[in-house]
Write a protein that binds this DNA or RNA. Structure first.
Lengths: 218, 218
DNA sequence: ACCTCCATGTTTACAGGAGAAACTTATGCA
DNA sequence: TGCATAAGTTTCTCCTGTAAACATGGAGGT
């Protein structure tokens, strides 16, 4: 009830303002069912204004996802970059940063990994996602060169690690880690399980590339 | 261009027909952006007819998800039930069935685990999901009683396992297991990693419930 | 056989949203 | 000074979800 129509015709940085509004709604509602018109309304512009900055609704969603990947990457880089950590500790801390991010930004995190943020439709989004994924890859390589992680194909370790961390994050977000809230112990324990599996050991290692595929998968 | 208006006024089993149509669209488009009107149209009824069988659009989506969980559960039960398998083999085969299902029904699988199929809003859906989840739990218990799996809290093992399998399924669906298609080897290898971690071993087991939480997580 | 009820359809109506097109404003630059 | 253009606004069309009122025909009681 303060500003009447004294807003200048040109917003200044409407694109940024729209993104902020959308991120705000995403954080509040934990979903991205908001309409583009609502974003415009809350930002105080006409419902067609956003189309000057985003091709369509999905274009905005992809931009939000891209920002999400950048922020996630920053968080993980920061966590992993701490001095004096072993590879195993880096791994734990990096995964923790990811799950932490997911828990603090559940809507955004879900959007980032949803089909509505189609990575094949936006090079920038794809690149941002790959940059973040690269943090994990470098960690695995480091651990492997260390002799700490088993010498299986890096893609296999990456699949296992990424599936585990992302899976835990999704379970944590959905509160499905357990029927009742038990805190973060299961997460920690699950990561221990993963790391114990990743680590160098005597037996089994040879079976990693067992030629026979398991049944019923393409 | 064959049937004019000879269709009987009462469909007979419109509910089922609508579900089948929706499942068909889901399988084709790999998303659930279809409108309720389109489902009605393709089923050959008026656009308001579905409301006699589903409260709203989400109600239909939840029913689709429920059916998905039942089918997934059937596939996994069948796979795990094969005679003469070790627990480890059962695990591999069960996970394979899950990933197999996801690869063959990517749209449905994504819907099942999306927020659009809100499990808190539908007891039947929640129950179906829990039944399927129960397959994994029973397997873990069996392995633990065997002495094959480490004696950590079952919730921890479940978190690790479920995160891994579901994570792999999502990565597989999204083609993110690797830049180029490399087949299912990484999946197999990732499951080996998980199983090696799940298994009984000498060291580390004690650290599973390390009292100090890792940094930066709530 | 007939009447009546009610689940299952259909038609009509309305409030919104996506997005295109045409119009307006103000700003940077020649 | 003045115009080209980016950035907003208005207006319009088509579509959706969903409610309400109406139609139909099969099942059950008489």
């Amino acid at each position: 009830m303060s500003e009447t129509t004294d807003r200048p015709y040109h917003h200044g940085d409407l694109r940024r303002a729209l993104i902020d509004t959308a991120l705000g709604i995403l954080a509040t509602d934990q979903n991205w069912t908001f309409t583009l018109r609502e974003v415009a309304r809350r930002t105080g512009v006409s419902h067609a204004a956003p189309y000057k900055h985003f091709r369509d609704r999905e274009d905005l969603l992809r931009e939000l996802a891209r920002i999400g990947f950048i922020r996630l990457g920053q968080g993980m880089t920061e966590a992993v970059g701490a001095k004096g950590l072993s590879v195993r500790e880096k791994f734990i801390v990096g995964a923790g940063a990811c799950i932490d991010f997911a828990l603090h930004n559940p809507g955004l995190y879900r959007l980032m990994f949803s089909a509505d943020a189609d990575k094949t439709a936006d090079t920038h989004l794809h690149d941002a996602a790959m940059d973040t994924f690269g943090i994990l890859l470098r960690l695995l390589e480091e651990g492997q060169q260390n002799g700490c992680f088993r010498p299986a194909a890096i893609s296999a370790l990456a699949a296992a690690s990424w599936a585990q961390v992302h899976g835990l994050a999704m379970l944590a977000i959905n509160g499905q880690l357990l029927e009742e809230k038990v805190g973060m112990e299961p997460v920690r324990a699950a990561l221990d399980v993963l790391l114990d599996g990743l680590c160098q050991r005597d037996g089994h290692t040879g079976s990693v590339y067992d030629p026979e595929p398991y049944p019923k998968v393409i």
